[in-house]
Amino acid sequence: RKGDTIMIIQRINFNEYSSEALEQLKKGAFLTVKDGNEINTMTIGWGTIGYIWNKPIFMVAVRYSRHTYKLLENAKEFTVSIPLNNNLKKELSYCGTKSGRDVNKFEECNLSILEGQKVSTPIIGECELHYECKVVYQQVMEPATLDEEIKKRSYSNNDYHVLYYGDILDAYLLKK
């Protein structure tokens, strides 16, 4: 419940909305992590949904410089909340440019924190599509093996990503 609104969870197959999820990902989605009592969300624009190790996987990339990196290293789980109908452009922009070290993004953007179903990390209530994931593998990027064009374009400052492969434990739509 959010206020007087009843929220209905409609479970979906992990790949049922993958086309919509990946289309929105280009515009932004929320990656949320909870470590102990600290909760942070950040905007991601990259990720993949796939099937590896006989598991549905959501792979996210987090730079070492991000506050979320330290939290994710401890938590080993995350949620991805994706707006489908709500235009959260302003909130996505804010959460992509401000650090959780300095501000409470949930308060600043008036985003609701709703309990996760299968993980202790919450979801963002204003989004319709949600993935709850447990990290089953992570890989530090190896700069020597990266395409030179991508390296120049995305890593001129040498702030590389760690790739986190999350077993999708739950996928659902949140309906009001």
Rank of each mutant, 00 (worst) to 15 (best):
V60Y: 02
E23K: 15
Y165C: 10
S99P: 02
E16D: 12
C109H: 08
I57W: 06
K90L: 06
T43R: 11
L114Q: 10
T43Y: 09
Q10V: 00
L25T: 05
N104A: 05
T32Y: 05
T97D: 09
M7Y: 03
I113F: 00
I44Y: 09
S19N: 14
G45S: 15
V103Q: 01
H161R: 09
E38Y: 03
N110L: 05
C127N: 07
S65K: 13
Y137P: 00
E91H: 03
I57K: 09
S93H: 15
N40Y: 06
T145Q: 13
H67G: 05
F14I: 04
L92D: 14
A21H: 01
R11M: 01
M7E: 09
T145W: 02
K2S: 12
E20C: 06
L163T: 03
G50Q: 06
M42T: 10
Q10H: 02
L92P: 05
Q139D: 15
G36F: 07
P83N: 13
E108V: 02
T48L: 10
E128S: 02
T32G: 01
V103C: 08
K2D: 11
A171C: 10
N13C: 09
K105W: 01
L71C: 08
N104Q: 12
K105H: 05
R101D: 04
H67Y: 10
V80P: 01
S93V: 04
M42R: 12
A144F: 02
S112Q: 12
L146S: 12
G3V: 05
H67E: 15
L22V: 08
L111Y: 07
T121N: 01
C95Y: 08
G45M: 13
T41M: 14
Y164F: 13
L174A: 02
G166H: 05
T68K: 13
C95I: 05
M7P: 04
A21K: 03
V135P: 00
I49N: 07
G50K: 05
L92N: 10
K27N: 12
L114S: 05
R66V: 00
I12S: 01
S154V: 06
V60A: 11
I150M: 14
Y172F: 11
G36K: 14
S99Y: 08
M141G: 07
S93C: 06
K70T: 10
N15V: 00
L92Q: 11
V135S: 01
F30R: 13
V80K: 11
Y94W: 13
E20D: 14
P56R: 00
N40M: 08
V119R: 00
G36T: 14
P56V: 00
P143H: 03
G28T: 11
A29E: 04
K134S: 07
V140H: 15
E16P: 02
E142F: 01
